[in-house]
Design a protein around this nucleic acid. Structure first.
Lengths: 197, 197
DNA sequence: CCCGTTTGCCAACAACCGTTGACTTGATCT
DNA sequence: AGATCAAGTCAACGGTTGTTGGCAAACGGG
């Protein structure tokens, strides 16, 4: 397939869409505002992306780009993961657009689920000491990383915003490492039982 | 001030508003839908709460209701906090309404910030080994608790949804405890420096 | 050079939203 | 009983949004 003459316009729309979705979320980001940012007519957005959901799907196409962790000592993976997540968040509007939208749109939440299941899950599966708990371990890592992003980039809690990237990584790394390779939490020994009682 | 005749209506509006805000977020929850749930006219909402933001402010008035932790051993506070947070989330729509809205509305984000600063902050200030790091420790606790709530109740990541409350508390407690009283993360020794370089 | 296709703009529609004001009903007090 | 005021209903307005179809200009192959 050869390059179309409208590729520049398509790309401009996508950039503007990512910025608006990241800054305002899905509902408050209007097609008119996105089109104005991209200096084109709103109807162009419809022509190239069908409708607002199609535009979002194209703008929020995301990959964590986790590096190969094979050559990293198992007890240093926590640090590597924490740093990678932070780098990924700082430079890319896509993750923020996805998170802001996933809170209110089921389709975006589903994409968020698949990102973590397909990209963090395998890492846990390879490094977790207990294969049966790998999914849970990946899930707990997601809670910590998404929670950190939520507090730092969206809610902007002052003590979390103030942290330098190095400090942030230093706080997060032991938690990630613990969820990944630390002792599993049984949790059912006090008042309940695993799964449904 | 004596009880007004309209108190039942006011309360019905508030209940319906909390449910809608919690389920749909601020923008997708319409005054018309809330009024329909409460079986009254939309104009009643305006009369009693001024406008949509006033309604939200009334519906999202929230208190963590942290218990007195004075009589709990310092090394068991993590467990107590984790359990309390979980209880608070399970039973009350208010927190979900607040979180769903805080992601896109600055006023709600500000309320979220003050909730954690004024309610979690003091706990950290009393138990942290290093007073200067108390705010940071409270912030990291917020990242973990809000991240867990985000993944379990809003994004519904399967491995996090599946956990029983006891299992969840067992996973969260060591992390909270570590953020509260564990060794502080220096974090600036590798490539950066604390605060601005 | 001409004709079909792509690219873009313009105006408009239909739906929905928050919000308002006027009117009716019902309770309460003298 | 009649006056007063709160409680509730109804219809509408102004604005915004996603979306559509028609039309003009630019482009490119024959």
């Amino acid at each position: 397939m050869t390059a179309r003459r409208s590729d520049a316009t398509r790309a401009a729309i996508l950039v503007a869409a990512r910025e608006r979705f990241a800054a305002d979320g899905f509902e408050r980001a209007t097609i008119r505002a996105i089109a104005a940012d991209a200096r084109i007519d709103p109807s162009m957005v419809m022509r190239y992306y069908g409708n607002k959901e199609g535009l979002f799907a194209a703008a929020a196409d995301f990959d964590l780009r986790l590096p190969d962790l094979g050559d990293i000592a198992a007890d240093r993976v926590g640090t590597a993961l924490a740093r990678h997540f932070l780098d990924r968040w700082e430079g890319d509007d896509t993750l923020m657009a996805l998170l802001r939208t996933a809170v209110t749109k089921e389709a975006a939440a589903e994409r968020m689920r698949s990102v973590f299941a397909q990209q963090v899950g395998p890492v846990a599966a390879r490094l977790a000491p207990d294969p049966g708990q790998a999914a849970t371990r990946a899930g707990m890592i997601a809670t910590q990383m998404l929670g950190f992003a939520l507090c730092r980039y969206i809610l902007r809690l002052p003590p979390v915003v103030t942290l330098s990237p190095d400090e942030a990584a230093a706080w997060l790394a032991p938690t990630i490492q613990h969820y990944l390779t630390g002792e599993a939490a049984a949790g059912a020994e006090e008042t309940g039982r695993r799964g449904q009682p």
